[in-house]
Design a protein around this nucleic acid. Structure first.
Lengths: 147, 147
DNA sequence: TACTTGTCAGGAATTATTCTTAACTAATAA
DNA sequence: TTATTAGTTAAGAATAATTCCTGACAAGTA
């Protein structure tokens, strides 16, 4: 199925007008596994849509996060990066390569949710949680693999 | 015991010259529970040491993080904040007030460490991990309490 | 049609952070 | 002591990510 069409549906569902810019930006973020920054998204969309401005990319990403269409992740240098995945998942931050990897694990989620249920936190409405694992790639050329 | 003197000791132990600026900045971060930003640290130290420049605060905090004397935490707006606590602990980020709270829990640490031991992650040297809990204060005027 | 609202490109403005430079300090060597 | 060196700092300029502003345009409505 066409990713642009799927983006259109999601936009409409979220109550947003499905403009060309929005469809392209949403499809780009959702297709990427690299947790791109706004700048990076701009570079990507520019290839086929050279008129989309950086400002539009910024404000559109903002809107998407607000509407819950994508998530924002912070790199350790403070730069905002975006994640098309919406499920509760965790991230591995690689100190030497600045990579951010998704790390999904149902068991871990259960573990933490169970913990948080027991540990009553008063006066706080928990929205989400995620485990941030910070580490260093042993071999920079190889990928990180989770078993 | 004098916090400045304790700061001096830590600086020397870390192999850094114990200058007035460094002592004051280290003592300030370690005394604060608010996870101050560089700007905020600058405001604090200025009160008694008006000549310390913002640039010095930035580079000194950098040095401290590098030497492991303090930790850096990112607020959800991407601003760098600093934490005098060195033990493995977690953070609660309050979306509506921008507060960052420490959240230490040995049981949780054990839980996660145990999990990570079982889950082999290949080609990654884990440096640290922390659980980020994002939520909204129910009553903004009251504190968050953990039981 | 006229009116309203929302969206966008382009560029200016802002802000956290880093960089540069020259002055200063402390430690060491002559 | 004086000279030398390396390290530290204040001040302000420069940078880079992000936000703001404005006028043009588009779509939807009466």
């Amino acid at each position: 199925m066409n990713t642009l069409e799927s983006a259109r549906e999601k936009l409409v569902q979220a109550g947003l007008k499905a403009t060309q810019q929005r469809m392209v930006i949403l499809a780009t973020v959702q297709a990427s596994k690299a947790h791109p920054s706004a700048e990076h998204v701009h570079e990507s969309v520019r290839v086929n849509n050279p008129s989309i401005s950086l400002g539009t990319v910024y404000s559109t990403l903002d809107t998407f996060v607000e509407k819950g269409l994508i998530q924002m992740v912070l790199a350790k240098n403070g730069i905002k990066r975006y994640d098309g995945r919406l499920d509760n998942h965790n991230h591995i931050h690689c100190v030497n390569t600045n990579e951010i990897l998704d790390f999904e694990d149902l068991e871990l989620n259960e573990l933490v949710m169970d913990f948080l249920r027991r540990k009553k936190i008063e006066n706080l409405d928990i929205r989400k949680f995620s485990l941030h694992i910070q580490g260093e790639k042993v071999d920079v050329k190889k990928n990180i693999k989770i078993h």
